[in-house]
């Protein structure tokens, strides 16, 4: 991985009438890097990818890939990129081989090379014996594997993967992830991946941009992002409370030391707090409401905690909050923290 940026994004914005889907984001991606865009549904990850892959036009801002502007030189950009989207559908009545031929023929790849390449890729994702079957008969996992190899036929320098493991069984997800790493290491392919799965981002990405409400709210390596909340002043607690109630949660939230609270299930809470008194304050707040603490753990931060710390809510909470209700910006982020 070099330091030379292959993608440069400056103030990229996309609006649909009054709704701001992507709000003036800026970042760059280095050559050979696996870069993750992490965030809940509706955060703007997919729209960002669609703009970068020339499927949608930005409302404002610019982006270049390999030095080519995504609007002015969209055809040149398309020669460099491949995109895999969970929404991508192949032609169901064409066979696996025909679909791949259709796509591969759009590039200047000689027939011999293309034939060899198609066979290799089908073998790689264990679809060789299905090569003459119509794609309409494939399972979700098989289709997604087809989607990935389809995007690799022309050996793109930049590969966009939009939720590549969404809806896949664990085994297929692992296979796809291994394949992504292999592709990056063996071919120096720059990969931009969007996901709402923290573990996936942690496993795959060299750097991660956390998106929430159309903005990039943090961008760094996974280790550095975790360091943001693993300083001496921050404590991550996991509490099991036998008689957990809304009153107890509210009592913890209103503690001065509490930065964020998330309920994991009917008895467990995950709390990010700060200050020397954090531990005692939280315990006191629970006991004041007659809460019965069964267990308590001091945890190492995860990307989920980072997200919670920065945005004040969990990734899964945001699925229902697609439309931003308040202005963005650092001050607004502070306000959104659940206290």
């Amino acid at each position: 991985m070099g330091n030379e940026p292959i993608i440069e994004v400056k103030n990229l914005t996309k609006t649909f009438n009054d709704f701001v889907a992507v709000d003036s984001i800026s970042f760059d991606v280095r050559k050979g890097e696996i870069f993750g865009l992490l965030g809940p549904n509706g955060a703007g990850k997919t729209t960002t990818l669609r703009m970068l892959s020339t499927l949608a036009r930005p409302t404002k801002g610019t982006a270049t890939i390999g030095g080519y502007d995504i609007v002015e030189n969209d055809t040149e950009v398309r020669k460099l990129v491949g995109i895999v989207s969970e929404k991508m559908i192949m032609y169901n009545r064409l066979t696996a081989r025909e679909n791949l031929w259709f796509f591969g023929s759009l590039f200047n790849i000689p027939k011999k090379v293309l034939t060899k390449r198609i066979d290799e890729l089908l073998e790689l994702v264990q679809l060789t014996k299905w090569k003459n079957a119509q794609v309409g008969r494939f399972s979700t996992g098989m289709r997604q594997r087809m989607n990935v190899i389809r995007a690799l036929l022309n050996m793109p320098r930049v590969l966009f993967l939009d939720e590549p493991t969404l809806g896949l069984d664990p085994q297929s997800s692992v296979e796809i992830r291994d394949f992504i790493i292999k592709l990056n290491q063996e071919n120096d392919t720059t990969i931009i991946i969007t996901t709402h799965m923290m573990v996936e981002a942690d496993l795959l990405c060299d750097r991660i941009g956390i998106m929430d409400h159309a903005k990039i709210v943090a961008l760094d390596t996974s280790t550095n992002l975790k360091k943001m909340i693993s300083g001496a002043d921050t404590t991550i607690l996991k509490l099991e409370i036998g008689n957990l109630s809304p009153n107890i949660i509210e009592a913890i939230r209103t503690c001065k030391c509490t930065d964020a609270v998330s309920q994991e299930n009917s008895t467990h809470l995950r709390i990010i707090a700060h200050g020397d008194e954090a531990f005692d304050s939280v315990v006191d707040a629970v006991r004041a409401k007659n809460g019965k603490i069964n267990s308590m753990e001091n945890l190492q931060p995860t990307l989920e905690d980072v997200f919670l710390h920065i945005t004040g809510h969990q990734v899964r909470d945001s699925v229902e909050q697609k439309v931003p209700m308040e202005p963005h910006g650092p001050s607004a982020q502070q306000k959104r923290r659940i206290r």
Binding site: S53, L55, I89, Y91, N99, F103, F107
Partner: peptide
């Protein structure tokens, strides 16, 4: 509607 456009449009094809 069927999203097959995602298959063709992002390619270097007019």
């Amino acid at each position: 509607q069927n999203k097959t456009g995602y298959f063709g449009i992002p390619n270097p094809i007019r």
